[in-house]
Design a protein around this nucleic acid. Structure first.
Lengths: 334, 334
DNA sequence: TTGTAGGCGTTATCAT
DNA sequence: ATGATAACGCCTACAA
C-alpha cells in the first residue's frame, strides 16, 4: 500500500499539499491539484482510515447495538437507520448485545475503544448501571437510546413510541366491540418497552370496569417469538373460559397466535380477535391479515439516526426526546 | 481519555510494559501486572482502536456487503454471519451496495480504506470489473463471495447453493404430479444466482419434453418483492390458459403469489401449486404453508463467515469453493 | 500557495 | 523482566 508520502514524492510536492487536497482542496493551484490527482490515480492511493481516525478522532462510523440477534422484528428499523447512515456518508457496525447487562457493557466499551462517532443503543431491558455508563459516554460520544424508558433527569436522547396509550386505545377498540375477555401475551423479560404496552392493556381494563384476570396473561420467551406465541395461545384457548380476543406485545407473537388458531379451526375474528403490535410489513401479507398497532419502525430507525447525526454535528445542543405517533391498523383479525 | 502513557506513569512503569500486558502478558512479574491493572482500572483506560489499527494493520472488523437494503430475505444469512463473527471476537460493518456496479466499487474501496480484516461480498449481479477488483483486494484482504457465479480461474473463495439442480428437482416434482404448465417468476435483473435457478426450470421442462412458453415467465423487480409477486401472479392467472403451478425465484415472490391466489379464491394446491426458493423461516407460518426449496440461509452465512475467518487466520492457504446442499421442502402448496 | 516539523497512541526492536 | 526509542500514516500549526 502506498502512503501519502509516496504520492507526494511522485507528484513532486510535500505531503502537506497532498493532505490538503485529501481534505477538500483549499488554496491549491489547479496545476498542483492535477499533478497530485494523477499521482494518486497512478499509485491507486487509498488513505489509511485508522491513521486518519487516530489523528482526527473521528471515524465516520456509528455503532448500532441491538437487543437480540437478527430477526424479522428489526429489519424495518435497520432499514430506516441504514438509509440515514448512508445519506450521511457514514458506515455502521451492527451487533447484538443480547439482554445481558454484562454483554451490553462490553460492547459499549468496545465501541468507545473503536472511537465510533455515535451510538444507537437499542435495548429492551433497562439496566441502571448501563444507563449511567451511557450518560458517561455521552459526554464524549453522542448516544441515542431507542425504545426504552428513561427518567426525566437522565440526560440522554431518546426515540420511542408511546406504547402504553396505543395499547390502551387498541384494547378499548376491542372492548367497544363487545370483547371483555381479552388475553394478553407479553414477554417474560420485564423490559421497559413491552412492560409499558402491558400497562396500557391494564389501564383499558380498569377504565372499563373489567376485572384483571392473571390467567389471561401469558409470558413468552424472547428466543422463539413465533413458536412462543403459538404455544401460549394454545394455553389461553384451553382455559375453561377462553378469551374472545388476544393481544400480543409484538407482531411476531401474533403470527404464532394466528397459526394456532388456524390449526385449531377457530374463526377469526368471529370467535377470537387478534391484535398485534409493531405493524411489520408482513402483517398485510398474512392470512388473515393481521390487525395491529402501528409504530412505523422504519420511522423509528430513521428518526433515531437523524437525531444522532444532529448531535454529532452539533454536540453542544442538549439531548432531545422524540415520541413518535402510532395508530391502530384494523385489518381482518379484529 | 487517558492514554497508555498515563497508565504507565500512574503505575510507575514504562509504556512498553503496559503495552505488553495489553497484548497478552508474557514475562511480567505478578506485582507489576497487578500495579498496571490497578492503574488501568483507576483511570478507566480504554486503548485507542485506531492507534492499534494503524500500528498493527489489523482492525478486528469484517465488512459485510449486501446487494440491497435490509429485508426479510437476509436476516437468516446475517444471523449466521453474526454468530460466527461474535464467536471470533470480531465486529462487523454492514452495508448495502445495491446492484449498481459503481456503488459496489465505492464501498469496496471504503472497506480497503478502513483496513477491515476480511470482506464478505454478497451480490446478485456479476460485474466483471468488480470481480477483478475483488481479486486484487484478495491479495491483501481475504474475500469470500456469496451466492454468485465465478469462473474456475477466478481465484476467490465462494459459498453458494446449487440453484440450478435444486430448481430442476423441484420442477420435476411438480411435473411428476401432472403439472406440465408451470409458470415462473424471476427477476428483471439478470443476476447470477437467480438466473441459475431459472436455468434449472428450463432444464426440467426440456428433460420432460415440455415446450418452453415465454408467456409463462414473468420478470419482477427487486425493490418490491412481495408486491411484485402478487402482480405477476395476477398476470399469469389472466392468461387464456393459466398455469397449474407457479415457481418463483425467491420465497418473497411466492408470498405475493399466495396472496393473489387467496384473493382470487384459487384453490391451492388443487388448482395451482406454488413453489418458492430459500425456505425463509416464515414459510411454515404462512397460510397455506409454503412448499419451497431449502437452502438453509443460516448455514450459508455461517459457512461463509467461517471460511473467511479461516483465510484470515491462514492467508497462505488458497481459496476454496463450497457448494452447500439444499432440498425440497414440501408443505401445503405443492 | 506550499513546505517544515511535530505529534496523535500504539506496537516492536533492541538494549539493559 | 523492563525500558528507551523508532516507526506506523496522517493532520496541522507555523513558517516561508
Amino acid at each position: 500500500m502506498s502512503t501519502i508520502v509516496d504520492v507526494a514524492k511522485r507528484a513532486g510536492v510535500s505531503k502537506t499539499t497532498v493532505s490538503k487536497i485529501l481534505s477538500g482542496k483549499q488554496n491549491v493551484r489547479p496545476a498542483t491539484l492535477e499533478k497530485v490527482n494523477r499521482a494518486m490515480k497512478e499509485l491507486d492511493y487509498i488513505p489509511s482510515g485508522p491513521a486518519q481516525g487516530m489523528r482526527t478522532g473521528r471515524t465516520r462510523t456509528i455503532a448500532v447495538l441491538l437487543p437480540e440477534q437478527f430477526n424479522y422484528g428489526y429489519f424495518e428499523i435497520l432499514h430506516g437507520i441504514e438509509v440515514t447512515v448512508e445519506a450521511n456518508g457514514y458506515i455502521m457496525t451492527v451487533c447484538s448485545t443480547g439482554i445481558h447487562a454484562e454483554r451490553q457493557m462490553e460492547y459499549l466499551r468496545e465501541m468507545v475503544r473503536r472511537q465510533v462517532d455515535g451510538i444507537l443503543f437499542f435495548s429492551y431491558n433497562r439496566v441502571d448501571k448501563n444507563i449511567r455508563y451511557l450518560m458517561q459516554i455521552n459526554r464524549k460520544i453522542p448516544v441515542v437510546v431507542m425504545d426504552n424508558i428513561l427518567a426525566d433527569d437522565e440526560a440522554l436522547s431518546l426515540v420511542r413510541v408511546d406504547g402504553k396509550s396505543l395499547t390502551k386505545k387498541a384494547a378499548q377498540y376491542l372492548i367497544d366491540r363487545g370483547r371483555r375477555r381479552i388475553g394478553y401475551i407479553r414477554y417474560q423479560q420485564r423490559d421497559a418497552a413491552t412492560t409499558e404496552r402491558f400497562e396500557g392493556y391494564r389501564a383499558a381494563l380498569k377504565a372499563n370496569g373489567i376485572r384483571y384476570d392473571a390467567k389471561l396473561v401469558r409470558e413468552a420467551e424472547f428466543e422463539s417469538h413465533i413458536t412462543s406465541g403459538f404455544e401460549h395461545t394454545r394455553e389461553l384457548m384451553r382455559l375453561p373460559e377462553p378469551p374472545r380476543a388476544i393481544m400480543t406485545a409484538t407482531d411476531m407473537l401474533a403470527i404464532g397466535a394466528l397459526n394456532y388458531l388456524r390449526d385449531a379451526k377457530v374463526k377469526i375474528p368471529e370467535q377470537v380477535c387478534v391484535m398485534g403490535f409493531d405493524d411489520i410489513p408482513l402483517c398485510k401479507w398474512l392470512t388473515p391479515k393481521l390487525s395491529t398497532i402501528s409504530q412505523n419502525q422504519f420511522d423509528v430507525g430513521r428518526t433515531a439516526a437523524n437525531l444522532l447525526f444532529e448531535q454529532i454535528a452539533h454536540p453542544e445542543t442538549g439531548h432531545r426526546r422524540i415520541i413518535l405517533p402510532g395508530d391502530l391498523v384494523i385489518r381482518d383479525t379484529a
